[in-house]
């Protein structure tokens, strides 16, 4: 428990540091969002409007950096991430809450499936090494080295077209309104299949490879020989002795990859024009939309930290050696 509280304190500190950096970095980048907005409206803004925009973005020159920092925290704690100016005047929090579910569902589900599928196949390949499963290895090595956005482009090129079942872009049919009904849900699933497959194929190989290699390493441990000598069934030795120990590094890898669900598949979302967080970030980057970028970075940071915390907890549960006495 003490260990857990220590970790928690550490993560809170890290979150503070990350949020503070998130505050300073955009202010250190040359250029100015208001100028970008002025350019966007092509001189149709009066000087008064420009002044009030500076105040709105918290960039008014009068306020010192410390006051800005304090008000930034106040806003953050009340859930106010500022206004986006790509989608001016929509609040950033609204844009993120609209795009986050798309990313969470698509990448979240595929990451979980990919982990379980890959780990399962890895256990099999590691335990039955020397059999036909070794033939899978070159294929998985190849696939794990293929970037997924490239796989996505190939998939769009080969599988989509006017008559194809697979849509090439978007998250749902453009004629539909997002709602939990019988028109929208199937359309959303149909649109997510291709990006999901792309992510699955390229990420599952990594899990297979790492799990297989750990299985091979663990198989030569003394306790595996003991387990065989004890006359336990092959299945029990494979799962309870070998896989149970080989799993540990994979679990922390899994928790970390959960952290990258939110931001990690930016390129897939861009390739498929999928309405997720990555795509929102892409649009923000194109338009120097600092509030939106900050908001997305914040969400990514927090999700990575939460995932790390989950990894620590999972490790505590799975590996008795990390539990401290008392």
């Amino acid at each position: 428990m003490k260990y857990f509280l220590q970790r928690l304190a550490f993560y809170l500190f890290t979150a503070w540091a990350a949020i503070t950096l998130n505050f300073f970095i955009p202010r250190m980048i040359p250029g100015d969002p208001v100028q970008a907005l002025v350019t966007k409206y092509q001189g149709q803004l009066s000087s008064k409007a420009i002044e009030s925009l500076y105040v709105l973005f918290g960039l008014d020159k009068e306020a010192g950096i410390w006051d800005e920092y304090v008000s930034y925290w106040k806003q953050l704690l009340s859930g106010d991430l500022g206004l986006s100016f790509t989608f001016f005047p929509t609040p950033v929090s609204e844009i993120i809450s609209e795009s986050l579910p798309w990313t969470l569902l698509l990448v979240g589900i595929t990451t979980v499936i990919s982990f379980f599928l890959g780990t399962g196949l890895g256990v099999l390949a590691g335990w039955r090494r020397g059999s036909w499963t070794d033939g899978l290895l070159p294929v998985t090595t190849f696939l794990s080295s293929v970037p997924y956005f490239w796989l996505g482009i190939i998939a769009i090129y080969l599988l989509t077209g006017p008559d194809s079942f697979f849509p090439s872009s978007g998250g749902f049919d453009s004629g539909l309104v997002p709602a939990w009904d019988q028109y929208f849900v199937p359309s959303a699933i149909q649109h997510s299949l291709l990006p999901a497959l792309t992510i699955l194929i390229s990420s599952v190989s990594g899990w297979i490879l790492s799990m297989r290699n750990m299985m091979v390493t663990v198989s030569s441990e003394d306790y595996i020989t003991v387990a065989h000598a004890k006359g336990l069934s092959d299945r029990r030795v494979a799962l309870s002795y070998a896989a149970r120990n080989a799993l540990l590094p994979n679990v922390s890898g899994f928790a970390l990859s959960l952290g990258f669900i939110v931001g990690g598949t930016l390129l897939v979302e861009i390739v498929f024009s999928y309405p997720g967080v990555g795509f929102a970030l892409f649009q923000a980057l194109g338009a120097s939309d600092y509030p939106l970028m900050q908001g997305v970075f914040l969400i990514i940071t927090i999700s990575v930290l939460v995932a790390n915390l989950l990894a620590d907890i999972a490790y505590l549960l799975l590996d008795p050696r990390t539990r401290k006495e008392g």
């Binding site: 306790y223 149970r244 540990l248 008795p320």
Partner: peptide, 13 residues
Amino acid sequence: FQGAMNSLNPVHK
């Protein structure tokens, strides 16, 4: 076995 240290599975009681 020889290896007293590694003959027991570390993750089980």
